[in-house]
Simulated assay, not measured.
Amino acid sequence: MKALTKTEFHFDGQKSVYHGKVRDVYDINDDLIVMVATDRISAFDVVLPKGIPFKGQVLNQIAAKFLDQTADICPNWKLATPDPMVTVGLKCEGFRVEMIIRSILTGSAWRAYKEGCRELCGVKLPDGMRENERFPEPIVTPTTKADEGHDLNISKEEIIKQGIVSAEDYAIIEDWTRKLFARGQEIASKHGLILVDTKYEFGKRDGKCYLIDEIHTPDSSRYFYADGYEEKLAKGEPQKQLSKEFVRQWLIEHNFMNEPGQKMPEITDEYAKSVSDRYIELYEHITGEKFDKAAEEGDIAARIERNVKQYLASRK
């Protein structure tokens, strides 16, 4: 099974390329963005040494579907998906915050709560909550967007006070965050899933706000199976989930949280395939469609380059 972990394309009009943890982002004439979802996988702010076959395709295609299914709520950056692993869209100036919204106390929020934290990003949390219990209503807990290292929790008031986002723009993107999440929950529920939490990124172009980047993918979101949720909660058992959290848990079990002196465990081909299977499982659950694996014959990078060049030429 092949995995694409690195790209070095040279497209007409290319101004720059940014290699993120998972995505490689090509700037075309300061007007368009070619975003390649690679098969890299990251956890605890480190990219794992082995790629996960079809992961990039899963992420790209889920995000593309949700961008289309939420375009009535807010404008977004997507123009086309010329390849299963690529989205081309409008270049926007991204806000330096990620809008995280949570409906259930789990993950890092639960870890902080267990340590005694009762306020998250300026939002007060009730006493006596259990792991995986629903909040009375979804809470928005933004983080500052860091170029390197950990994103940091920040309150709405601090974001506005520091001038990271204006009060007017923040009101718009917070409203969109809640509406996008409600739509995501509605779609998930039709497929027997609970959209537990997720993050959105927004930007501006010509004075107008846009939804940018990926949405509702297993890298940016956490899903629980609805079936058995209440019973597991009542018994204090772990929830069956579809998200990247299972990779984090595997790393924790192998004594790795990217702390000094810790060594990355070996990612075997078998483990990489099992992660690939989980990503495909999520795709099929959340979309209700069978996952159609992109052709593996030949060079994945060559296929992407050919498809993107063809698309860019068609816009001239």
Rank of each mutant, 00 (worst) to 15 (best):
163 G>E: 10
181 F>C: 04
17 V>E: 03
15 K>C: 08
304 I>Q: 01
58 V>F: 03
210 Y>V: 01
249 Q>K: 05
59 L>C: 02
40 R>H: 10
18 Y>Q: 09
91 K>M: 15
64 A>Q: 07
272 A>N: 03
146 A>T: 06
80 A>R: 10
132 N>W: 02
184 G>N: 00
203 G>L: 00
186 E>L: 15
296 E>I: 11
263 K>V: 13
212 I>K: 02
156 K>H: 11
198 T>F: 01
152 L>M: 14
246 F>M: 14
55 K>I: 00
266 E>K: 05
107 G>T: 10
152 L>A: 15
71 A>Y: 08
167 A>R: 06
24 D>R: 02
239 Q>V: 02
36 V>M: 11
167 A>M: 09
27 D>N: 15
300 I>H: 14
241 Q>N: 07
19 H>A: 04
175 D>W: 00
263 K>W: 02
1 M>H: 13
207 G>A: 11
17 V>S: 09
92 C>I: 06
306 R>F: 10
67 L>F: 15
82 P>K: 13
206 D>G: 07
73 I>N: 04
266 E>G: 05
1 M>Q: 03
87 T>G: 06
15 K>W: 03
296 E>P: 05
112 A>V: 05
39 D>G: 12
95 F>Q: 04
14 Q>V: 03
314 S>M: 11
221 S>Q: 08
87 T>M: 15
119 E>P: 06
259 E>R: 04
143 T>N: 09
124 K>A: 14
